[in-house]
Design a protein around this nucleic acid. Structure first.
Lengths: 126, 126, 126, 126
DNA sequence: GTGGTCTAGACCACG
DNA sequence: GTGGTCTAGACCACC
């Protein structure tokens, strides 16, 4: 399981971790029931503070993607996020697309990027 | 020119404003040379502090999207594309798409959302 | 007499004008006693507000470099600035050199730039 | 680490701070990876508001000279040279030299000042 | 009129 | 502990 963090990234560390784990779950590299690495180990691997990983796991848990049990670690609970506001879903997409347009990419290029990224994002039906 | 801010949104206020103005520029609702509303007026309209809007304009200026002239307001800059790292561009897209996949949307639905958002994002050739 | 202003420049317009006139004086392209263009004409030429030029002339006058007489325009008064604090003289030099060093220029390259710029800065003895 | 601000200086406070830190970096008194003082401490030392220092650090960060990590302070960034327009570099140099010429300094005196200031501006090869 | 800077002080987010 | 954001309100610089 490969996770990396980047000090240059604008997102806080804990969110980088949480985002990457979400991607692993979406990509089925972490199936339902699979165990996440222990907080301490992941913290050591990434060279970050223990609290940082704990915050990431807490976020994942509060979204229902993992369950954390004292003594037995964290496991993937589900591949489905709770019902979200439609607008809340579109907003990050709109922000990302806006950036791409402002960077001067053509519509075709953007659609190709989207397809490319969707490749491998596991079981998405359709 | 319609801009709104949302206290529930996790992004800071100034960034919501800056993001929305970016979207307006990408959508060509604010064309090159168009004047942005005065800081104080926009602040009053949104019910936020003057400095909050000033911070948004400062960010837009430092990204080269607008030029601010002391005494005569801010206008949309002539577009010189700031070259951006390819990875910088893909990351937010990947995060947004991951969120959509985890929300249970089908690939077709996601592509439709993308098309929908790209509608009207002006100037995107192709 | 060629003067230009640049909207992208961080300095205020009036100071760009004042700085360029100073350079012309230092370079002896404007000798002592020479007449400066009328405020209105220069403003029209540069496409800026009349007050902007007035502010530039006011600054030059307050430094003793020009004299402004009602009805007969402005003329170059002297090629010597009033006694200035040594530190006040060094500060902008230090700032400029710091920028060059941070830009990665070698010492030799910097000295060459300095010589180059000093070329043509008129009567400097030595 | 000695930083001072001067109310008489025309530059805004936050820029004086930012300029002085740039000089310290150029002079290698702040090496790569070195920690900058906490915002609040530096603010207290200089007797200015916390936000003033925050603005200085923000500027340094947006120029890529430092990296600021939430919760663990600011450190001098690993030097990736931001390519700068040649004209951008010459302009402040020209302005500073003009000032010196008009102050009546001889060419020799000016070159000596330049050498003097370049002394200790670390890493400048050649 | 425009935007910019600074202050004082509160509250939040991160590690 | 660190920095970030936001507010209210003052004052300045520019055009």
């Amino acid at each position: 399981m490969i996770i990396t963090v980047d000090a240059e990234d604008r997102r806080p560390l804990y969110q980088q971790v949480s985002d990457e784990i979400k991607a692993l779950i979406a990509r089925c590299e972490l199936a339902e029931g699979a165990a996440l690495p222990p907080v301490r180990q992941l913290a050591a691997d990434l060279g970050v503070n223990l609290n940082t990983i704990a915050a990431a796991y807490r976020e994942l848990q509060s979204e229902g993607l993992i369950t954390v049990k004292h003594g037995s670690g964290a496991v993937v609970a589900s591949r489905t996020l709770p019902e979200t506001d439609d607008d809340e879903l579109r907003r990050p997409l709109r922000t990302a697309l806006t950036q791409l347009v402002l960077a001067g990419l053509s519509r075709a290029r953007i659609l190709s990027l989207v397809s490319d990224e969707l490749q491998g994002l596991g079981k998405a039906k359709g």
